[in-house]
Amino acid sequence: MGYTKDDLKKLVDELTKQRDELKVKLHLAKAEGRDEWEKLETKWEEVKGKMKTMGEEAGEAADSVTAAAGLLADEIKKGYERIKNAF
């Protein structure tokens, strides 16, 4: 397709606008991803602690710790998926 000078200028203007909007969205996505990551890291440390406790506990206490660790692990998995989908 042949472009006139005006057509090309309009196209470049549109692309510039889209580019600027995408840069802002990417920047925000990175910030949101970092915030989500920090929250998940705290939960990750909790899971690791509960995993250690599971090895030390017995009986009902171990079942309770296992259930709590499972819930945290599910939250972390969902959070990782949210971060992945943001990019």
Rank of each mutant, 00 (worst) to 15 (best):
G2A: 15
Y3D: 14
T4P: 02
T4L: 04
T4I: 08
K5C: 07
D6Q: 15
K9H: 08
K10C: 09
L11Q: 13
V12H: 05
V12F: 13
E14A: 12
E14I: 05
E14R: 09
E14V: 07
L15T: 07
L15H: 08
T16S: 11
T16R: 15
K17C: 01
K17F: 12
Q18W: 06
Q18G: 05
Q18S: 10
Q18E: 13
D20F: 03
E21K: 12
L22E: 14
K23S: 07
K23M: 10
K23C: 04
K23H: 06
K23Y: 09
K23A: 09
V24W: 10
K25W: 06
K25N: 11
L26I: 09
H27L: 14
L28M: 05
L28N: 12
A31C: 04
A31R: 11
E32G: 11
E32D: 09
G33C: 01
G33E: 01
R34Y: 13
D35E: 13
D35S: 13
D35F: 12
D35T: 11
D35G: 11
W37A: 14
W37M: 08
W37F: 14
K39Y: 01
K39A: 02
L40Y: 00
L40N: 01
E41M: 14
E41S: 15
T42Y: 11
T42G: 14
T42A: 15
W44G: 03
W44M: 07
W44P: 00
E45Y: 15
E46P: 04
G49R: 01
G49Y: 02
M51H: 05
M51Y: 06
K52G: 03
K52M: 04
K52Q: 06
T53A: 11
T53G: 02
M54V: 04
G55I: 02
E56G: 00
E56C: 04
E56Y: 06
E56L: 10
E56P: 01
E56I: 13
A58K: 14
G59L: 05
G59Y: 05
G59F: 03
A61N: 07
A61E: 10
D63K: 12
S64E: 12
S64G: 09
V65C: 03
V65A: 11
T66F: 15
T66Q: 10
A67F: 13
A67E: 14
A68W: 00
A68T: 10
G70P: 03
L71K: 09
L72M: 10
L72G: 01
A73M: 11
D74I: 07
E75A: 08
I76M: 00
K77A: 06
K77C: 06
K77L: 04
K77Q: 07
K77Y: 10
K78R: 10
K78F: 03
E81V: 08
E81P: 03
R82L: 05
I83S: 00
A86V: 04
F87Y: 13
F87S: 14
